[in-house]
């Protein structure tokens, strides 16, 4: 039996993250990064937004969106460094930085989504 490698699991997480990012990020970013700042759409009221965020379903979906998208980005960026800049030889440094960053980001997302006042 081949020694167990992390690659298949990383790829599954990468794929899941890709799906979440593709389905959810365009509309969320259009809304909060472009339309509301530019005044195309009125910003939702503080009370309403907080109400939506507080809901456990929202928190769950957002947690999966954030953590999986970060892992997706980390996995893809790791391979971009290998292929675009030929940095395979640095992979002992690249792997911890990429996935470590994704894990830190996911923990932060969990913290932000869990502790709401």
């Amino acid at each position: 039996m081949a020694k167990r490698s992390l690659e298949p699991f990383l790829w599954l997480l990468f794929s899941a993250g890709g799906v979440f990012a593709a389905l959810l990020l365009p509309s969320l970013l259009f809304l909060f990064a472009i339309a509301v700042p530019l005044g195309w759409l009125a910003p939702p009221s503080y009370e309403h937004l907080l109400g939506v965020l507080r809901h456990p379903l929202t928190r769950t979906v957002l947690f999966f969106l954030c953590s999986l998208s970060l892992i997706h980005g980390a996995h893809r960026f790791r391979y971009t460094l290998y292929e675009g800049l030929r940095m395979q030889h640095l992979n002992e440094v690249i792997v911890p930085i990429c996935y470590g960053g994704a894990i830190v980001g996911s923990l932060w997302a969990g913290y932000v989504l869990l502790y709401m006042r």
Binding site: M1, A2, S5, E7, P8, W11, R76, Y79, E83
Partner: peptide, 15 residues
């Protein structure tokens, strides 16, 4: 075939 294909230079090298 799985053992050959699952090496790092197997399918996981493909992006």
């Amino acid at each position: 075939r799985h053992e050959i294909l699952s090496e790092h230079e197997g399918i996981w090298g493909c992006t």
